[in-house]
Simulated scan of single mutants.
Amino acid sequence: MREWFGRQVRSGYERLLRREIEGVPTHVAVIQDGNRRYARQNGADAPDGHRAGAETTEQVLEWCQDLGVEELTLYAFSTENFDRPDEELEPLFDLLEGKLREFADADRVHENGVCIRALGDVERLPERVQDAVAYAEERTEGYDRFVLNVALAYGGRAELLSAARSVLSDVDAGALSPGEIDVETVEERLYERPVRDVDLIIRTGGDERTSNFLPWYANGNEAAVFFCAPYWPEFRQVDFLRAIRTYEHRQESWRTARARRALALLRATGSAELDEARNVLERFRDALPSSEREQLDPEEFDADERAAD
């Protein structure tokens, strides 16, 4: 009876959260932490925890597609994971190989146009996993309705270091001048294919850190971050919806802060030349509380007034 009642309450809460959500992030990145601790908690071995976590991964993919998220990145295997004992690594490599091939052949993947891609130093992985990566990418390379990135043998600092070395090499060779280095110069050296800026990072398992995950695309975009206590195999849809709500609140706060900064700059200088600040205020003035909007001088943000001046 208690279990049934708990399910009913959770289902009702999920419906409430869905009604509260008005917008969703384009790109969600997940640090799937807690598989081994979940296994120990249940008297099982680490491979059992990884298998349980793989089931959660499939559910999250469905939740993303249901809500309209366009890109999902999963931190499946970090460069630090190579330090784990062989008796844990070999079953994990078997699981990665099997799931990549299973996803590549799944009807739902092809029906929903899911493009599977690997991020990281894949060549460090066993050949059987590399073959599975190639198989999944080739089977889904023509799709563009949803992108599933699987971070394998991935380390954010190593990725940035490699890009920096590549840029320096081109500068030394005379193929690139320092003045030509811009955002695109770095991004084209990070990954073979474009990756959207990360809007939301989710980490399960209780730790509150992002662990060197997608620093260029997450930190640079000031992504919202949602930390939660459940181990990855215990992650539920209600947790996912809470994460989406965190993203929405972060966006609202960001819009309000931008509008306030632009307004403060205009009032502090009184200059008619600060078009950038005026444009920001025009874009985000609706994010200001109504009491602050009512106090605005129309000339502070009205484009027609600026043109007349």
Rank of each mutant, 00 (worst) to 15 (best):
Y13R: 09
E14V: 08
L16H: 02
L16S: 03
R18Y: 08
I21S: 05
E22H: 10
V24G: 01
V24R: 09
V24W: 02
H27E: 07
V30D: 04
Q32S: 08
D33Y: 01
N35V: 01
N35A: 09
Y38T: 03
Y38F: 09
H50G: 08
A52I: 05
A54K: 10
T57I: 03
L61Y: 06
W63H: 08
F82V: 13
D86S: 15
E90M: 15
L92N: 12
K99I: 06
K99D: 14
F103R: 14
R108I: 14
E111N: 13
V114Q: 13
D121K: 14
E123Q: 14
R124E: 11
Q130H: 11
Y135D: 02
A136Y: 06
E138M: 12
R139M: 00
R139A: 01
T140C: 06
Y143W: 08
D144C: 11
R145P: 08
L148H: 05
V150F: 09
V150K: 04
Y154S: 05
R157W: 09
E159M: 07
L160R: 08
R165L: 04
S166M: 00
G174N: 04
S177V: 00
G179H: 03
I181L: 09
E192P: 12
R203K: 03
T204D: 05
G206A: 04
G206H: 00
E208A: 11
R209M: 08
A218C: 07
N221T: 01
A223R: 10
V225F: 14
F227V: 07
Q237A: 12
A243K: 11
Y247D: 05
E248P: 14
H249P: 08
H249S: 12
R250A: 15
R250W: 14
Q251Y: 09
W254T: 02
T256V: 06
R258W: 08
L263E: 00
L265Q: 08
R267N: 03
R267T: 00
F284K: 07
D286Y: 10
D286S: 01
S290Q: 01
E292P: 10
E299M: 00
D302C: 06
